[in-house]
């Protein structure tokens, strides 16, 4: 009877111990994990691969609205367009073209429409050496002035490429100059940055660090 009593006592103590452990685990008395405030998912505009601009080439490819490029819905084919110039010799844009910014080249060195556009055919371009590329195939025209950049672009060192680096395994796409640069104002426009990194610890997340002044 004493042996049984001892066994029972030991078992009871063990039961109590294990129950205690179970309760402790259920209540998470040790190592309650820090609950991180959920970090908002990033806006998909920051992960899309679209180019900075919608160029005429892209509109033709995607069968978009190209009506802005039909010059002769407004202009007359037989009547060449005369440029209006102000006192300083700058082009005065008519209100129909007020969406354009004449910002190509510094010091107004490049402010004449017919430096690039063909005055005899507004739906074409012209280079200084007498070639007449189509509006949608303007890159060689850009290259006629920006030679080194054009070389880099042809070699793939300037501009955007996507698809396959291994040309044997699949196609690749090289973006034209106007996919990123507005020909009337070619500087790449500033844009809003994607959200920066969040700090690991919630307390640090609540109070972001002071910016160090370099």
């Amino acid at each position: 009877m004493t042996r049984n009593g001892n066994t029972n006592r030991v078992l009871a103590v063990l039961t109590l111990l294990f129950s205690g452990l179970a309760v402790a685990f259920a209540l998470r008395l040790w190592g309650r994990p820090v609950v991180l405030p959920p970090i908002p998912l990033v806006d998909p505009i920051f992960t899309n691969t679209a180019t900075a601009r919608v160029s005429l080439g892209l509109l033709l490819q995607t069968h978009g609205d190209t009506s802005d490029y039909d010059c002769y819905t407004c202009h007359d084919k037989k009547e060449p367009v005369k440029l209006k110039l102000d006192d300083q010799g700058n082009v005065v844009l008519p209100k129909e073209h007020s969406d354009l910014v004449m910002g190509h080249g510094s010091h107004n060195r490049n402010n004449n429409c017919y430096n690039c556009h063909d005055e005899s055919n507004l739906e074409a371009l012209q280079t200084r050496d007498g070639r007449h590329p189509k509006l949608a195939e303007s890159s060689p025209l850009c290259g006629s002035c920006h030679g080194p950049t054009y070389d880099d672009w042809e070699a793939g060192a300037h501009g955007r490429i996507s698809g396959y680096w291994d040309r044997k395994l699949g196609p690749f796409v090289r973006q034209n100059c106007v996919a990123c640069h507005d020909p009337h104002k070619p500087a790449f426009p500033p844009r809003a940055p994607a959200p920066g990194p969040h700090l690991l610890h919630p307390i640090a997340q609540a109070a972001p660090p002071q910016e160090r002044n370099p």
């Binding site: 899309n48 180019t51 900075a52 955007r160 490429i161 996507s162 396959y164 680096w165 044997k168 699949g170």
Partner: peptide
Amino acid sequence: RTRAGRYPACLEVCPTGARKFGN
């Protein structure tokens, strides 16, 4: 991607084409 011949994701998304990758 790259061992299947494609460009990495960071390169394809770069709006300025600052990233270049290859063999």
